[in-house]
């Protein structure tokens, strides 16, 4: 039996460029506020919201809204499942490159 093609390891939820960027930015376990992610990845509010919802529905990120003095802030962190999905995606991409070489 032949090995499955490396693209089988790609997960559509993670493979999308912006969502991969969000997970990569959070990869080291840091917490990043919504506006900072938006600025770093040059996304609009609506666009980022949509990608965050997809990732949150897949349990790859968690978000927490903080209210207090000043404007409310939404903090986003990666989950263990998100870390694993990101690592798997990167491994699949490396396998894809290796298979072509």
């Amino acid at each position: 039996m032949t090995d499955p093609h490396p693209t089988v390891g790609l997960d559509d939820t993670v493979h999308q460029r912006s969502r991969l960027g969000i997970l990569a930015l959070l990869r080291s376990g840091v917490g990043i506020e919504f506006a900072s992610i938006r600025n770093e990845l040059h996304l609009t509010d609506g666009n980022l919201n949509r990608h965050l919802k997809v990732l949150e529905d897949a349990a790859f990120i968690s978000s927490r809204r903080e209210t207090g003095r000043g404007r409310p802030r939404t903090w986003v962190t990666i989950t263990a499942a998100g870390q694993a999905a990101l690592e798997q995606e990167l491994a699949a991409l490396r396998a894809l490159i290796a298979a072509a070489e």
């Binding site: 991969l20 960027g21 990569a24 840091v30 917490g31 990101l86």
Partner: peptide
């Protein structure tokens, strides 16, 4: 097509690694 896929994969890996470093640096 294959070359394009490989290039895209390389770019995604490079972007992901740079963004991971950037996240830590920002924090």
């Amino acid at each position: 097509n294959v070359n394009g896929d490989v290039e895209a994969a390389r770019r995604l890996i490079g972007d992901a690694e740079a963004l991971g470093e950037r996240g830590w640096r920002l924090a």
